[in-house]
């Protein structure tokens, strides 16, 4: 059953009483930026959901805030920020923590949970297709609206649940992905196959994500410049659910597609933007995604003695 848009159910001051998560995340990001460590020109493709073969460089720490906002049909508008801390443990292993929350208009602002993911590069050298294994543990409640992936029968009705109801439903989930990715003539092509299982019960759920992208220039300029084409990369991604092990397919699933754009500020953060459009009635109309990421180069060197530098 789809709840009606509820603008009067909860007084507005209940939203303002809580500390906005976005403010907290911004504060953490600012502190990290104050470390005076130069940022690197990120080499990651501009995807929001799709993973490519690119891992974090060993020793680097990427701090990112991903924001998603939408006004789904028959539901209140919401904003969902996700803080992402990605660390390159080795050249073949990247580990990442996500902290998630959301603020829904006429409802409340809540913390929705965390994820811990690990990505492992399988083959030692580059091939036509490069596989990466992905393993994740999620402790996320039912009010989560980050849509970091779509699996099973995820649909617009999940976005229509009130926060008080959703947060009581806590999922402990393991998720695996096979990431296949290729680089050819400046283009990146990536495909992800997703399998997810709630350890509290329920069937295995499946999903997919595919993306293609390219920097706007393949040759770097000999002078430092802000708006050079080499600092931009553009692409598109498509993702959605593939139901469960019992009813594998596209029936009663949601799907999204949209263009993506990244802007790498030289010696500064990377900005990303993507409007993503729901492709069927089970999907929200438009998801507006933004991302700000900052890479602290050789973060681990900050903890080494000066004499060894």
């Amino acid at each position: 059953m789809i709840p009606e848009r509820d603008s009067m159910a909860r007084p507005v001051h209940s939203v303002t009483r809580r500390v906005p998560l976005s403010a907290l995340f911004t504060l953490i990001l600012s502190v990290v930026c104050l470390l005076h460590t130069p940022a690197v020109r990120a080499q990651e493709p501009p995807y929001f959901v799709t993973y490519s073969q690119v891992l974090e460089e060993p020793g680097n720490l990427e701090v990112a805030i991903k924001g998603l906002t939408a006004s789904p049909k028959d539901a209140n508008a919401f904003f969902s920020p996700t803080l992402e801390l990605e660390y390159g443990a080795t050249a073949w292993w990247t580990t990442e923590i996500y902290l998630q929350g959301q603020a829904t208009q006429n409802d409340s602002t809540i913390f929705t949970g965390f994820r811990w993911e690990n990505r492992f590069r399988v083959l030692p050298i580059e091939h036509w297709i490069n596989p990466v294994l992905y393993v994740e543990y999620e402790d996320v409640n039912g009010a989560d609206k980050s849509i970091l992936e779509v699996t099973g029968h995820d649909s617009i009705s999940d976005l229509q649940t009130k926060n008080a109801e959703g947060r009581a439903d806590i999922d402990h989930t393991i998720e695996g992905k096979i990431i296949l990715s290729s680089n050819a003539k400046g283009w990146n092509f990536s495909e992800n196959y997703i399998a997810e299982k709630n350890m509290m019960g329920g069937a295995w759920e499946f999903g997919y994500a595919v993306g293609a992208s390219r920097p706007l220039a393949l040759v770097a300029s000999g002078r430092s410049c802000l708006f050079c084409r080499q600092n931009f990369s553009a692409g598109a991604e498509l993702y959605g659910g593939l139901a469960t092990v019992h009813d594998f397919g596209l029936r009663d699933t949601s799907h999204y597609a949209g263009p993506t754009l990244n802007f790498n500020l030289p010696h500064g953060p990377t900005l990303g933007f993507s409007p993503q459009f729901g492709l069927n009635d089970n999907s929200a109309g438009v998801l507006w995604r933004v991302k700000v990421s900052y890479e602290v180069q050789q973060f681990r060197d900050l903890f080494r003695g000066k004499e060894s530098r």
């Binding site: 080499q43 990651e44 493709p45 490519s52 073969q53 690119v54 891992l55 460089e57 060993p58 390159g88 080795t90 050249a91 073949w92 590069r121 030692p124 050298i125 580059e126 490069n130 680089n183 400046g186 990146n188 920097p215 393949l218 040759v219």
Partner: peptide
Amino acid sequence: TWKGMPSWSSLPE
């Protein structure tokens, strides 16, 4: 990768 040098294949050739 086993010696700490990452692949830079995503930088254009």
